[in-house]
Amino acid sequence: MKLTQGCFSFLPGLTDDQIYKQVQYCLGNGWAVNIEFTDDPHPRNTYWEMWGLPMFDLQDAAGVMMELAECRRVYGNSYIRISGFDSSHGWESVRISFIVNRPPHEAEFELVRQEVGGRAIRYTTVRKPTVHAST
């Protein structure tokens, strides 16, 4: 199972060259780029750990790629994503976010349906235990 969050999540994983081009696109639009990581990719977990500070005023994606390589070295068994924040008036929010690193074994979630008061239905997302294939 492949976790699908953010842009490009239904596509095969991006190569470093493709990541570089997306980061350069963000920088070309004047967006601040940041790198985040987590070992809990639950859809409601919007607060991932930040790798350093957001990178403002960069002109070349090489700086972001250098930080991404270091983050992968330290947290290579975690989910890592890159986000582009647009601080311009009227937007002031993340304009793009995409996963650039996945752990060897993806987290799996199950959707639980429950009938509550009247005819209402409540859905809950529950993380399933990770089962590793024996080698």
Rank of each mutant, 00 (worst) to 15 (best):
M1Q: 14
L3V: 12
T4M: 00
C7E: 15
F8N: 02
S9R: 09
G13Q: 02
G13N: 13
G13L: 01
L14Q: 06
Q18I: 02
Y20Q: 09
Q22K: 15
Y25G: 02
C26W: 06
G28A: 00
N34G: 00
F37P: 00
D40E: 14
H42F: 04
P43M: 01
P43C: 03
P43S: 02
T46M: 05
Y47N: 04
Y47M: 14
E49W: 00
W51D: 06
W51K: 05
G52S: 00
M55W: 11
F56S: 09
D57P: 01
L58S: 00
Q59N: 13
A61K: 02
A61Q: 05
M65E: 06
M66H: 01
E67L: 07
E67A: 15
E70A: 09
R73W: 12
Y75R: 03
Y79K: 05
I80D: 02
D86S: 01
H89Y: 11
E92S: 08
S93T: 08
S93P: 10
I96R: 12
S97L: 01
F98I: 13
I99K: 10
N101P: 02
P103N: 00
P103R: 06
A107P: 05
L111M: 07
E115W: 08
G117T: 10
G117D: 03
G117I: 05
G117Y: 13
G117H: 13
G118D: 15
R119Q: 04
R119L: 06
R119C: 04
R119W: 13
A120S: 12
I121A: 13
T125Y: 01
T125C: 08
P129I: 09
